[in-house]
Design a protein around this nucleic acid. Sequence first.
DNA 1: ACGATTTGTGCAATCGTTTGCATAATTGGC
DNA 2: GCCAATTATGCAAACGATTGCACAAATCGT
Lengths: 361, 361
Amino acid sequence: MSVTLKDVALAARVSVSTASRALTGTGLTSERTQERLARIARELGYRPNPIARGLKTGQSRLVALLVHNLTNASFQVMAEVVQARLKALGYQMLLCIGGDDPQAESDTLTTLVDHRIDGLIVVPTGKNGAQLKTLSKDVPIVCLVRRDDATDLETVLADDPQGAYLGTRHLIELGHKRIGLIVGRQDTTSGRERLSGYVRALREAGIARDDTLIHAGHYVPETGATYARKLLDLPRPPSAIFVANHEATLGVLRVTAERNIAIPDDLSLLCYEDMPWFEWHRPAISIVDNGARDLANLAVDRLLHRMDVKGNGNDGVREYRVGARLIKRDSCRQIDAPAPARSGKSKSSSSKPSAAKSAKA
Amino acid sequence: MSVTLKDVALAARVSVSTASRALTGTGLTSERTQERLARIARELGYRPNPIARGLKTGQSRLVALLVHNLTNASFQVMAEVVQARLKALGYQMLLCIGGDDPQAESDTLTTLVDHRIDGLIVVPTGKNGAQLKTLSKDVPIVCLVRRDDATDLETVLADDPQGAYLGTRHLIELGHKRIGLIVGRQDTTSGRERLSGYVRALREAGIARDDTLIHAGHYVPETGATYARKLLDLPRPPSAIFVANHEATLGVLRVTAERNIAIPDDLSLLCYEDMPWFEWHRPAISIVDNGARDLANLAVDRLLHRMDVKGNGNDGVREYRVGARLIKRDSCRQIDAPAPARSGKSKSSSSKPSAAKSAKA
DNA sequence: ACGATTTGTGCAATCGTTTGCATAATTGGC
DNA sequence: GCCAATTATGCAAACGATTGCACAAATCGT
């Protein structure tokens, strides 16, 4: 079918081994032969067969990225970043979707190792620690976004405590005292850490923690809607809601729209993680950026490092944190008076001149 | 490192070839040996090495999906569908992102074929027809969403003429006479076809085509914003806008929000292709669903078929169309009076009781 | 100009499978 | 029980590269 090394060697009237050495640049070869072979190879359109090479070398030039899904915007940009970086280095990305399901994750891991992937970046479910640990002896592995506590794998994490702190502090600085929090399940690292950042900011500002303002659940729109309703139905509803996940934000927005609650006039809204449409939305939604791009880049860096250092060099550092940053847009407003007292005066840019009903009676 | 066939054979005291045949089920093997080998293999934790197998058989159990990006919601669901289907069949998906760039596409194609992928589903840029044609001799290829006119590859397309027709007709049935269209570049099949569907619906309803209402451009939010402004600035602005792409919709929404144009009261909005947040948006956005899920499934079906039929069986059918369907939500309203004449009466569900300003003076 | 280095090349084994061909074991008909 | 037909196994050669080892050629010092 295609041109093999043998063909090239034949055409150049050298042995296959010489051809191999000349083309790969390994071993001693005269400059002349090297050039000559390169030329002939080019002319013949020779392309080394990665399969054959892989069999011998045990490498595949394949790196896998295992994420939960592709609807999550963070995973999208991570996938794009990883793909771009790897491609530039001559690797192909094997993108796998695990759906946050331990069984699927486990199966996929097995298949990937079978395929002799050269490296793996994984957002772990956290339930396959043992397997990951075992595999990491054969393949360089870097965990992303989540830690698998059962392993001591190198892990690249968002600085969630810091991000949540930053966001909460921002709201506090705007004068908010009652800040609702809709956060992720407390059996995930990120869920716990975002809560802790929120709590820390509150404590630092001398605001008492009020557990009726805190809700934890899955990262889905329904969660956001349910808890938004709960928060708004409170006798003293919060003046701001910090939604610690972008999917849940959909639900919150839905509820505020249903109830004609104007953002940011009646309620300030701050969201964790970016989505492409957040800045097109009106009002543009302020966010705490978890730095998906940076996370992905760092993960690739670390992976490449481990792939270079044979034997999976142990650098000591096991955990990398990527700083979060606040991106102020238009969904949070300054609270001047202790309570806006049904004034209806809009604040940021030209907003709806109406719809200023207080949140629930 | 890992358990090889040799180890299994050794443990079972048979030759490697027998072991191979027993485990793969090819050739003649006694039931007894077969079972025995299977057991031993299981006990030893033997997993065949796809690389070695691939070298011999020329197959890789890898199927590639080449799309433009992952921010496009359609591509997301396609990727998820393809991945799920393939995985169930024991294939791994190689997801590549070409960015709609011919050069990147070309490079990627080469690499993929080097890796001896067993099949390819590609959203072609349309500029590498020759290469695709050549490759299709070695690898089964199915085009998705777009046709590459330079090839006669099997292609799975959305029924864009029909979808655009459906959407436009819906608006017409609601009483709209002046319908703005923001559509894709006219050098792409989908751009042209969506326009043609729109035109056909208009013609059928006896409405004269008005080119000031039609704008074609890239599928990005900026395009939507720019053209939305142009449309709304018209002396007689349209009462409905049909945005033939979901990315562009972002821009349109932005503009309507900026100008306090209430949807659907002041302007009806219909969008092509779904996005997860459309149904959470307020008002929920009506769409023409291009059937991304069906498209992906059909593409997989066709690819599997071609992969089965060695020699790339030519079935005659070169083009498959997947029906589009209208999903009515809350962003389009019935036009009763020829012009809403600043009445401010809301129509669909409980909408904003205010904000009913006519679209521009 | 000669042996000691250095440098370039080829042979052949190897990676883990599959598979054509030859041979060994089993079966069945009579 | 014997011979042919059938079925099961093993040997060895692929697949297309890489690589250790041995040998040939070129280089160098003296």
